Simulated scan of single mutants.
Amino acid sequence: MREPPLHLDRVPDPKLQHVLEEVIRAETTLELLVGIYEVVKPALIEAYQLHQLETNRFMDQPTYRAIRFILMEEEEMVAWGQSAIQALIRTKQDSEAAEAWRSHLLSYLHHAGGIRGEHTQAEPHNLPPARFNGESYKPQFYPKRDERFIDMFNRSAAIDDYYQDEALQPDERTYALMYKRLREMDVPEWMCPILFTANDKPWDYYVDLSRQLYDEARHAMMGEIGLYQSGIPFYRYPIDIKASVSLNTAFTPLESHIILWGIEQDLMSGKSGKKWEHDIAVQSGMPLAITLQDYDWADEVLHAQIGRKWLQPEFGALSEMHVAYEEMRKKWIETTDKYVNLSEQTPWWPQFVMEMREGWERRNEVGHYGG
Results as ranks from 00 to 15, higher is better:
Tyr37Arg: 00
Lys15Trp: 02
Ser95Trp: 15
Ala87Tyr: 05
Gly114Val: 12
Ile115Val: 11
Gln17Val: 08
Ile67Leu: 15
Asp13Asn: 13
Arg90Thr: 13
Asp13Gly: 02
Met77Val: 02
Glu118Ser: 12
Thr120Tyr: 03
Leu88Ala: 05
Gly81Trp: 06
Pro124Ser: 09
Ala97Lys: 08
Glu54Ile: 11
Ile36Ser: 02
Gln121Cys: 10
Lys41Trp: 05
Ala97Tyr: 02
Gln82Tyr: 07
Ile89Gln: 10
Thr91Val: 07
Ala130Val: 14
Lys92Ala: 07
Pro124Cys: 10
Gly134Asp: 04
Tyr64Ala: 06
His51Val: 14
Gln86Cys: 01
Ala112Leu: 13
Met59His: 09
Leu30Ser: 05
Asp13Lys: 03
Arg68Val: 02
Glu96Asp: 05
Val40Ala: 14
His110Leu: 02
Ile36Asp: 07
His104Leu: 02
Ile89Cys: 09
Leu53Ala: 08
His111Ile: 06
Arg131Thr: 09
Thr63Gly: 06
Ala79Gln: 12
Ala87Ile: 05
Arg116Cys: 08
Glu135Lys: 14
Glu21Ser: 10
Asp13Arg: 06
Glu74Ala: 11
Val11Lys: 05
Glu96Phe: 05
His125Asn: 11
Ile45Thr: 02
Val40Asp: 00
Val78Lys: 00
Glu118Asn: 13
Pro14Gln: 14
Phe132Leu: 01
Gln49Cys: 07
Thr55Leu: 11
Glu96Cys: 01
Glu99Leu: 12
Ala66Asn: 13
Glu118Val: 14
Ile24Met: 15
Ala47Leu: 15
Glu135Asn: 10
Phe58Asn: 01
Val78Gly: 00
Leu32Gly: 02
Ala112Thr: 09
Gly35Phe: 10
Glu96Ala: 07
Glu99Gln: 11
Ala84Asp: 06
Ile45Glu: 04
Thr29Phe: 09
Gln52Tyr: 10
Ala47Thr: 15
Phe141Lys: 04
Tyr137Phe: 15
Ala26Gln: 02
Thr63Tyr: 03
His125Tyr: 15
Glu118Ala: 08
Glu76Cys: 06
Val40Pro: 00
His104Trp: 04
His119Met: 12
Tyr48Pro: 00
His119Glu: 13
Glu21Gly: 03
Glu27Pro: 02
Pro62Asn: 09
Pro12Tyr: 14
Glu73Val: 13
Ile115Tyr: 01
Val23Cys: 05
Leu44Phe: 13
Glu73Leu: 11
Asn126Ala: 08
Glu22Ser: 02
Pro62Ala: 03
Glu38Ile: 03
Trp80Arg: 04
Glu118Asp: 13
Pro12Asp: 14
His111Glu: 11
Leu20Ile: 09
Ile85Asp: 04
Ala79Ile: 03
Glu99Pro: 05
Val23Thr: 10
Lys41Glu: 12
Ser103Ala: 11
Gly35Pro: 05
Asp94Thr: 03
Glu76Gln: 09
Glu73Asn: 08
Asn56Cys: 14
Arg102Glu: 05
Leu127Asn: 11
Gly81Asp: 07
Leu71Cys: 10
Gln17Gly: 08
Tyr48Thr: 00
Pro128Gly: 15
Ile115Gly: 01
Arg68Trp: 00
Leu16Phe: 08
Thr28Gln: 04
Leu71Pro: 09
Thr29Trp: 06
Ala47His: 15
Thr120Asn: 03
Phe141Tyr: 14
Val39Glu: 00
Val40Asn: 01
Glu27Met: 03
Ala87Gln: 09
Asp60Gly: 00
Ser83Gln: 10
Leu88Val: 06
Gln86Thr: 01
Gln140Gly: 13
Thr28Pro: 01
Thr55Asp: 03
Asn126Gln: 12
